[in-house]
Design a protein around this nucleic acid. Structure first.
Lengths: 144, 144
DNA sequence: TATTGTTATACTCTATAACTATA
DNA sequence: TATAGTTATAGAGTATAACAATA
């Protein structure tokens, strides 16, 4: 990135506002009622990475360690996550998803499909394509 | 929008996760320490629309009326917003921004510029262009 | 002495329910 | 009777500070 144009500034202002509004919608229109967005996000991370320590998860989700302790405890209580001692460092803990979590994610994907189908009617093909391109960039921005 | 491909589903999953993480970052890396993201968003809306009733603001921000009452009260307490009786319907209230709010938004824009300049180093020109295209679509999605 | 994770506590933001005033 | 806004109260989610165990 070389230089910030006026357009860039206006875009980020709009981006900021849109992200906050969307996050509020997502917080309420959950595909799974019993799981918070962050809990869902942690499961997604575990599905991609296999396993991780609470500290790693906290850094990835941009949450403080105590918050991640709480989230992992919640997920463990619901049988979606397993906590095991780290093989080499006994201070650390290894968190991984259970088979039940995989089943739940599959079901969640199905529900999300329905929710999407409704929203889809309001966007054009081109707009969807734009979002598809933007998703990885937003991911990158989220943990830059 | 005609049909949902596998790519679309994967993109939305990633989009959801990225939006939630970004919203947490934005909640903390505020350009103005004393204002919440929603309060900033309300000021932005007022700057664009001129004035609005609490009910209109609540719908636009996807927040319940009592929450908007609180937000407007906060902004009024800080001298950033004016509450005036509606000329025709005495149940309603007209909210508009003060001159102080305009000055604050200008200063905020300057700080955001600095913050952006740091993030900008991590993105390519092409990635910025993608975000610039996506911003209006996200806005649309936020209040679809 | 530094680091990982946890416990205890408090704060911020938003929601729901009940109330007031006006239409 | 319905609607706009408010007040009172509660809940979800996250943070900071203090602590325990291990490196």
């Amino acid at each position: 990135m070389t230089k910030l144009s006026e357009d860039d500034l206006a875009a980020v202002s709009s981006l900021r506002s849109a992200v906050m509004r969307l996050s509020r919608r997502l917080r309420h229109q959950r595909v799974d009622e019993s799981l918070s967005p962050t809990e869902m996000s942690v499961l997604g991370t575990l599905a991609r990475c296999g396993s991780a320590t609470p500290g790693e998860l906290a850094r990835k989700e941009h949450v403080q360690p105590p918050s991640m302790t709480r989230i992992v405890a919640m997920l463990e209580g619901k049988g979606l996550v397993r906590r095991e001692p780290h093989p080499e460092d006994r201070r650390q803990v290894v968190v991984s998803q259970t088979e039940q979590a995989e089943a739940m994610l599959a079901e969640s994907r199905r529900k999300r499909n329905v929710w999407l189908a409704q929203l889809a009617e309001g966007l054009t093909d081109e707009e969807w394509a734009t979002l598809r391109d933007a998703a990885p960039v937003l991911e990158k921005l989220a943990h830059l």
